[in-house]
Amino acid sequence: MSTLEILLQKIDPRPGFREARKSRRHFTDYVFKILLGIVMVVIISPFFLVLIEVASAGFSQVFGFGQGQGIEFFTTFPGAGLLGGIRNAFVGTIELIAIASAVGIPLSVFGAVYINEYTRPGISREVIEFTSDVLAGIPSIVFGAFGFAFLVDFLHLGMGLVSGSLTLAFMMIPTVLRTTQEALRQVPMSLREASLALGATKWSTTWNVTLRAAFPGVITGVLLAIGRVMGETAPLIFTAGNSLSVPTELTGPGSWVASMPYTIWAYVSDPRAYLQDKAHGTALALMMMVLAIDLVANLISRKVTRRLV
């Protein structure tokens, strides 16, 4: 017998492979799995706790039939004593997001296409990618401060719809830029080559083949970015102002605009108790909007991976 075999005899003198079911290792294995299951429950329980809290007081606001409730919650202005609905915030958020998307998405998607398809990999490309990675990680309040310093103060745009939505657009750029690049990178090189080999121009290859193939990925990134900025409060505090009605002008106090996240913040810190309910209602509505967008993004991206695998 070799040394090895003698050694192994020492470790496990039993010739058979039968081992008592309740050995220490089996037990540890079992306990470890149970423990991790409990950890998972702990991790996801806040989701339900938050949902229950928000829905407890918010449900009657969004789906009730009282004054300023149900559909009226979204269609009436706060009015005297803020007893009405949150039309100002609802419309404000929609307008802010619409303008932010109209500015931010084309800039970042087309920018990403240029960077990925038309430039050679090199220092400049890496610098752009790195700075947008950094920017994607910058706290939202820093974007708010930048929007305030640049748009409101430096460009004299003043607070309001324009400054607020442009700040949100700036926030979208790094995220959408990077996700678009990622989606473009997933498109196999051979697809582009096949198109070029047919005599197509670079532009028509990019537009008709590459971008189309990357489209689901791009849309997912765009939706995720929209969902993210929709819930942002901090960038709007110094750039959008607040208002009890919807903006009527492009500059000046007439352009000040409310948003749902800002309204939640303002209402929660208000001593009037019934505003807590309004805050819950707004939070529930905001959560439903954001989660719906997230869900769509999720479904699209799942379809994408299913197609790619």
């Binding site: 010739p15 039968r18 290792r25």
Partner: peptide, 20 residues
């Protein structure tokens, strides 16, 4: 059967089996 014992039998340890 590994060494005459049913490896899928009740009470056989899969970890010990794989060691062998």
């Amino acid at each position: 059967r590994f060494r005459g014992e049913d490896i899928y039998g009740v009470g056989s340890s899969v970890y010990d089996l794989r060691k062998h």
